[in-house]
Computed example of a mutant assay.
Amino acid sequence: MEPFRILVVDDEPAQLELIGGFLRKQGFETTLAESGEKALRSFRDTPFDLVLTDQKMADMSGLDLLKAIRAIQPDAAVIVITAYGTIESAVSAIKGGATDYLAKPVNLDELRYRIEQVRERLRLVSGNRDLREALQRRHRIEGIIGECGQMLELFSMIRRVAPSEATVLIRGESGTGKELVAKAIHYASPRATAPLIRLNCAALPETLLESELFGHEKGAFTGALARRKGRFEVADGGSLFLDEIGDLSLPLQAKLLRVLQEREFERVGSSAPIRVNVRLLAATHRDLEALLRAGQFRDDLYYRLNVVTLLLPPLRERRQDLPLLMDHFLKVFAEKNRKTIRGFSR
């Protein structure tokens, strides 16, 4: 385990040694600074997990030091200690970005408790950051390659819509990367640690598709030997990506509409409602407006799905991205086949 580094700042030598000696005995890696200026020099040179600073010092107040430290590192943890324990100074410290506030004379047991609180918070923040970075490395937007205007606008829309709860309709021809966009939205959203469940609506007949979506009870139909959860239930708390949603039959469209409106459904063979919290991401290569006019797609479902629409351009409309794609796939397949290939011949 890496040592927890603390910078202690106080212009009173006795107080500085008292706190510094106590923290060293507790196993913390402690650096002492008898002035704000010296503390700033140390902070610029060394990464610290926590700064403990006196408020009233001759060369620089603790609040001024706090402001300077946060200008260097905005998320720095700082505890302000002062003999002037008024409400006003406490409020000023917290408004200035202090993590916590202690009054002199310092209770060393209380100090240890406050430090452990900071340590635990930093541990949680670090763990969440590592998890999010791992997820983003696994499903990052740069997996969708492009730098033309249409693709840059698509990337901007993905970043804007991902943090929301909005239903997203992803449209584009086959092979344009609709599933990659759905992954990018999910893994950049607050639901990133929950499941992303996928289902191709064109891959199954209607009878099986209903069971796949909503699940079934034992004995609901021939071959239903046990209760089975559907994709909506499995995706609870996360996202459900329904590809080729334009191929849904009208009866299933009605059932999907109910889930979007009421956030509940019944398994096949049951009348007991099941509530779910699922974000829907849908995709299609079909002309939904033409299906509407032909009476093959419900207009109420269309408007429920069409909250945010992302249109993926085909490669023929983004020819300037061809060199990027060529270089990308050359690198991928060269590494896969353990070949050294510098580039394409002219």
Rank of each mutant, 00 (worst) to 15 (best):
V106E: 01
F265Y: 09
K95F: 06
E153G: 02
R191E: 05
Q320M: 14
G246A: 10
P251W: 10
G237R: 11
D59P: 09
Y303N: 12
L23G: 04
E88S: 12
T340K: 15
L260Q: 09
K25F: 14
K331Q: 14
T53C: 03
D49C: 06
A294T: 10
I341W: 08
L250M: 15
E153S: 05
L108Q: 09
I81A: 02
R346I: 11
S270P: 06
R198D: 14
E179A: 01
I274E: 07
A162G: 04
L23R: 07
L242G: 03
L154F: 00
L288R: 07
R198Q: 14
G27D: 09
L199P: 08
L40M: 13
A182D: 04
L213T: 07
C201E: 01
E262I: 07
G237I: 08
G219V: 07
Y303I: 10
L301I: 11
V259R: 05
F297M: 07
V307A: 10
A334R: 07
D321F: 00
L152P: 03
D100E: 10
V308G: 05
F344H: 12
R44V: 03
S345E: 14
I141M: 13
D300G: 12
E37G: 13
V125S: 13
P105M: 05
D49N: 11
D54M: 01
K38Y: 07
D299A: 14
